[in-house]
Each structure stands twice: as C-alpha cells, then as structure tokens.
Design a protein around this nucleic acid. Sequence first.
DNA 1: TTGTGTTTTATTGCCTCC
DNA 2: GGAGGCAATAAAACACAA
Length: 296
Amino acid sequence: MESGGRLFFDPSACRGNNNMLFLGTTADLAFRGRSILSMDESSKRRPFFSSPDDLFDDEYYEEQLPEKKRRLTSEQVNLLEKSFEEENKLEPERKTQLAKKLGLQPRQVAVWFQNRRARWKTKQLERDYDVLKASYDSLLSTYDSIVKENEKLKSEVVSLNEKLQLQAKDMPGEPISDNKAEPLPVEIAQIISMKVEDRLSTGSVGSAVVDEGSSPQLVVESVDSYFPAENYGGNSGNSMAPIERVQSEEEDGSDDGRSIFSDVFVAAEAEQQNQEEGEVLRWWGNIMLNNAAVLF
DNA sequence: TTGTGTTTTATTGCCTCC
DNA sequence: GGAGGCAATAAAACACAA
C-alpha cells in the first residue's frame, strides 16, 4: 500500500494526458490545502469509476460533472467476487491484472479487497456467534435437566434416610451407622446395588457398580465428564472449530476468547460443580448401602 | 418527497514484517 | 524505511417506509 506518503488518484490531473494517470501523495494533498474527503464539491474532477475507454473521454467527463463517488458495475463486482473466492489476499501481480481487466486503478482493487475482507470477517463472526450460541444453549438445557435430576435424587436420599431412621427405631440395639457390617448375601447386595445404580447412573453419569467376582461391594467409578466431549470441542475440535478460525484469523493471540464467550465457561464450571455434587450423592449411596446391610 | 437506516467506496493512522 | 494489512471512520449511493 501507499502509507507514509500514500498515493491517491487525481483524475482531474489526467486531463489532456492520454495515458498517464496522475498519482499524488497525501503530502501533495496537504500541500494543496485540501483533502479527498472534504474536498470542495465544486472541484471539477473526473469520477473514480469509469471504463478504460471513457476514462479520458472529454464528453464523458463533461457529462459526469460534478464528480460523484461511483459504485462498481455488477460485472466488475462479479469478477472481483470470483477472484476473492479464489484467494482473499491480493498479491501485486493479480492486483495489476484485475485492475487492467476491470478498468480500475490497482488502488481501487486493493481497497475493494480490503473492504471485502472486512465484510467477510464480520459475517464470519456472526456465523461463529450463532454456532457458539447454539452450543451454549444446548449445554445450558442439559445442565438444567441435570440440576433437576440432582434435586430429585437429593430428596430421594433424604426420604430414604428418614425411612432408615424409622426402621432403626423399630429395631433398638441395632446400630445403623456401623460401617463394619458383615458383607451382604450376594443376591440382596445385587438388588440394592442395582437400585442405587439406577438412581445414580441416570444419563451418562459415572455409575456405581458391583464389582463382579468378589464379595459384593459398591465400587464408585471416577467420573470424567457428564457432557460428551464434542460439546466442548476440546479434543474432537469440531464444534468449536469456528472459534479457532476466528482466533487464527485475528492472528494476534491477544484474546483468549473468555471475554467474548464467558458464558460457555460459566456453564462448564457449573457442570464441574454438578459433578462434585454427584460424587456426594454417590458417597451418600455408599453409606445407605452400608446401613441397608445392617438392616438386612 | 423526504427522512432514515444500510451498504459501498475510499481515506487515515497505526502496526507489523522484511 | 517502505509495503501492505487492518480498524475506524467519512461520505456518497442506495433502499425503503411514511
């Protein structure tokens, strides 16, 4: 580009010159005491957009006065769009070729590509936002249902506990919290553990299972995550791909994404908290089993 | 017709890279 | 230090409702 002495196209300076386009610099403009933007509308300058043939045609020039900013023709835009689809960056050679083909200044082609890239980026951000929003919404609804299930399980634990207390009262002298209870008969332990498993393993949450082949005991599996990995896009990298694209597009690495997508991280943290609650419930289930063992 | 919002073209200033 | 990219912005062109 033409920074630090940027070039501008001054068509009026081309009058009477058959082939040369007048290219000045911003310094030139300042020297002349005017700017392109604030230039007096009455100044007689040729329009920016014209075909190569009529660029220096006096008749055309007279018709177009006073100069107005022109839009590119649909043919020009179509060709530019095609070129942009092939490659959104413009190397000097291609810029010159396109400019020749379209009857535009190379600078105009460069500007068009720059603006087009800006529009593309805006659209891409919108698309990324939509994808992320959908992902977040689904995560949120999953989280809500887990919270409800969690509440339900908690209340069941409470009511079962109350029942145990009542039964303990009916059988005085029988400690209910003796964790050193004798192992259950296999059939009974299986029934109980299946019940607990049903309660605790709803959905894909880590389940409490009976370790087959040994004396019946509750084995609590470690819980990695409730949510399918693709919800985070972490290792699979699909659902969050747009974010990666945005970041690579930005190429500055200054934004870790949390400021824009903080909601997603809030949901993730909430999910972690929920996992911890799940662990507490499983612990409760364990206690309950031990207590049940005493009762039986 | 006119007011208003949107889109497009172009400039400016700053930044990075070589 | 020049070249080129980008964000921010201006202003013309355009679209459209009232």
